[in-house]
Write a protein that binds this DNA or RNA. Structure first.
Lengths: 217, 217
DNA sequence: ATAACAATGTTATTTTATTAACAATTATTT
DNA sequence: AAATAATTGTTAATAAAATAACATTGTTAT
């Protein structure tokens, strides 16, 4: 029996890098390049060529010895792995600066991922469209998410509303959440959760800057 | 000879968690709690109590057996480790939505880290103040950074300007950089660089959502 | 007083991620 | 035609991070 390839066991970090490789590759393609070496990808991404080759080995892609990797083929393979055929719809809850920043990042790029709805409680925002994304009242969350079949939610509300927002999204049937507030949220285990905290990142940079200047002394 | 404790060898992940512990602890403190158990911290942060205890062991902090950790003491210790006494000044380059979002996150909180300048090329923004942070012309970058002694830069410009901005910041003598554009940048090894790419994160969430729904079949 | 319990602190183990090593291959040069 | 060089693909080794195991220690209950 032929087993369907699932890419089930790829390391988390490899998944993240594949997404980044693809972006770099698309850029190269648009500049007319057709092939690329592992060390070129590595240089762009600040990693080692071995890492690149190992990631590509894991997804079963082979280059040619003196030409490197076929950019188009590789882009397609990565798309096969990380995209879903039908596309996935995303909602942003909290149309403040951060929410709008995310919408801008995505607008214009044709992805299998599309942000199709924003939610907010501010009446001035409700009813408007930002970069093609309509802003609905937060009270409509469940309805719209179910109507549209939205699977992923991005939380960009003020920290104090984070957990309530998360609960509402989960109740609406969301499958994956991305929490950008500094407040950790709880979700049932069947919801995939990723959290990112900008303050922590900045404090980390500050720590290493401090360490390095101490070391110099 | 007494050796000064440097916390030089703390794992990167521990540093990030310490920052998060502190935030959770400050919250608990403001609610009148004086002590906390490792499993309480763990629950808040979605990690295991062992992880918490191990991190605290690494920084040499001891709790008491049936009362847990003294919140105030622990906050002070963490501050000792990750903050620098004199404080560190930060600049944001790119006062778009993302830049302003970051400023809002920070405003009001009294940190050893303070955002003291924003830069942009848009004449409508230059000269304004956003949440107490003045916006200067990008052409003033070097002067202001050196005058103010700014050590950390956050890059929130459009991707196509990322590398030039990075070069300018490095030339101005910046010590640490935080790049929020999806375009990886190159910096000399003496500059500490952290990069974060929102699109990658979202694609990763999408991948795991997809994987899980495939698994259900 | 003693047993049971619920914590901490630390060492050992396992898992995950990265890096190194190197055989194999093919183009290029001599 | 042989030597050299550059590159891939893969296995082996190392490093980093997380988890498990468990001894220790007070506290509470009996």
């Amino acid at each position: 029996m032929e087993e369907k390839e699932t890419f089930n066991h790829l390391p988390h970090k490899t998944i993240a890098r594949l997404s980044q490789y693809r972006r770099a590759l698309l850029l190269c393609l648009s500049r007319g390049k057709s092939h690329i070496f592992s060390h070129e990808i590595a240089t762009i991404q600040h990693i080692t060529p071995v890492q690149v080759r190992r990631d590509l080995m894991l997804i079963g892609y082979s280059g040619t010895l003196r030409k490197g990797y076929n950019i188009k083929e590789l882009i397609n393979l990565i798309a096969n792995i990380i995209d879903s055929e039908e596309g996935i719809k995303v909602a942003i809850v909290g149309m403040g600066n951060l929410g709008r920043a995310l919408i801008n990042y995505f607008s214009g790029k044709r992805h299998k991922l599309s942000i199709v709805a924003g939610f907010d409680t501010n009446p001035d925002k409700i009813g408007n469209t930002m970069n093609g994304v309509p802003c609905y009242s937060a009270s409509m969350m469940k309805d719209i998410i179910q109507q549209e079949g939205i699977q992923i939610g991005i939380i960009t509300v003020p920290a104090e509303n984070a957990s309530q927002t998360a609960n509402e999204l989960v109740a609406a049937g969301i499958k994956g959440l991305l929490n950008y507030t500094p407040k950790p949220i709880d979700v049932p285990e069947y919801v995939y959760l990723e959290e990112y905290d900008m303050i922590t990142t900045l404090e980390k940079v500050a720590f290493y800057v401090k360490m390095r200047s101490l070391e110099e002394e």
